[in-house]
Simulated assay, not measured.
Amino acid sequence: MAERAKVASIEALEDFRSSLVKYSQRTKSALDEVSSEMKRLREWLSYERRTGWEAEVRRGTRRLEQAEAELMTAEMSGLQDDLMSRKMAVKKAVRALEESTAKLEATKRWARNFDSVVAPALRPLDSLRDRVAGDLPKAIATLDGLVRALEAYAERDLKPRPAEGSEEGGAA
Score class of each variant (00 low, 15 high):
Val57Ser: 02
Arg109Thr: 11
Leu83His: 04
Arg62Asp: 14
Ala154Ile: 04
Met38Ile: 11
Glu164Tyr: 06
Ala96Gln: 09
Ser9Asp: 15
Leu64Thr: 09
Arg63Glu: 15
Gly134Asn: 12
Val94His: 04
Gly165Tyr: 03
Glu48Leu: 10
Met38Cys: 12
Leu136Tyr: 01
Leu122Phe: 02
Glu168Asn: 09
Ala154Cys: 07
Leu31Asp: 00
Glu37Arg: 05
Ser18Phe: 00
Phe16Asn: 14
Arg42Thr: 01
Glu43Ala: 12
Arg26Phe: 02
Leu13Cys: 07
Lys22Val: 01
Gly170Tyr: 01
Val57Ala: 04
Met84His: 01
Ala141Gly: 06
Arg148Tyr: 01
Arg63Trp: 00
Glu98Thr: 10
Arg50Thr: 15
Glu33Ala: 11
Ala163Val: 08
Met1Glu: 10
Ala67Arg: 03
Lys103Gln: 09
Leu146Gln: 11
Thr101Arg: 05
Arg26Gln: 13
Arg50Cys: 10
Glu105Met: 08
Glu11Asn: 05
Ser116Met: 13
Gly169Phe: 12
Glu14Met: 08
Gln25Cys: 07
Leu41His: 03
Lys138Glu: 13
Lys39Arg: 05
Leu97Ile: 04
Ala2Asn: 08
Asp126Ile: 03
Ala102Trp: 00
Ala67Thr: 04
Lys28Glu: 13
Glu43Thr: 06
Ala5Phe: 11
Ala152Ser: 15
